[in-house]
């Protein structure tokens, strides 16, 4: 089982993730050039990057400053989400053993705390979905499912690392969860990890270039 999830299944998961994302990007660009030419008429690289930059740095936009709690929660969630799997010592060692590729990693204690931070942030996002009326009214089961898919690899990874229950089983569950997440990204709104850059670039161009905003 371990051989299967780290072998063929890992290949399939990474393959679907990478090819899926490429297909997604190409189809969005194609569809836009067929039916939404207006997007290109007002395109501005300057405003695109400015808008993306402003929304990638914490509190970079007014909207984020008006909801500081959510902003902190979302940034903690996303930073840990991206950094932990990439800079985890255990993952790094695996890449090294398999492919001879190695890079810098965090200390194990750091990733341990970051995982806890991520779980806390996910809990925070979960609770606000239940508690805040304006979030609750738009929330569907799908939103909970996606949050679960995103958080599961970390929760199970934490459990495996601390050898809760049977280590070997936990590890397999953890790997499976990671693979489910990778496969889910291109087919769900988790694809925002790429499409975010497109939609922001568009709206940046809309309000900057098209509306003739002043550059300071």
């Amino acid at each position: 089982m371990y051989e299967f999830v780290t072998g063929p299944l890992a290949w399939i998961a990474f393959g679907i993730f990478i090819i899926g994302m490429i297909v997604k990007v190409i189809s969005v660009i194609r569809l836009t050039s067929q039916k939404d030419k207006v997007v290109f008429n007002h395109w501005s690289w300057g405003w695109s990057f400015r808008s993306i930059y402003r929304w990638l740095i914490p509190f970079g936009s007014r909207s984020m400053r008006e909801k500081p709690g959510l902003t902190i929660g979302v940034f903690v969630f996303h930073i840990c989400l991206l950094a932990v799997p990439i800079f985890l010592l255990g993952h790094s060692i695996m890449w090294d053993e398999r492919w001879g590729i190695s890079w810098w990693s965090f200390s194990e204690m750091t990733t341990d705390y970051m995982t806890l931070l991520l779980i806390a942030a996910a809990l925070f996002l979960l609770i606000r979905r239940i508690v805040l009326p304006e979030v609750k009214i738009v929330t569907t089961a799908y939103d909970y499912l996606l949050l679960a898919i995103a958080a599961a690899p970390f929760i199970t990874g934490y459990m495996a690392y601390h050898q809760w229950f049977d280590y070997k089983t936990m590890l397999i569950i953890h790997i499976l969860c990671g693979e489910i997440m990778l496969i889910a990204i291109p087919f769900t709104k988790l694809s925002h990890m790429i499409l975010f850059f497109f939609t922001r670039a568009h709206i940046g161009s809309e309000f900057g270039q098209r509306r003739g905003a002043v550059t300071f």
Binding site: S63, R129, E134, T139, K189
Partner: peptide, 12 residues
Amino acid sequence: KTWLQLCAHCGY
């Protein structure tokens, strides 16, 4: 298509 698909239902 992208907008309808992407909304995170976040409340911002």
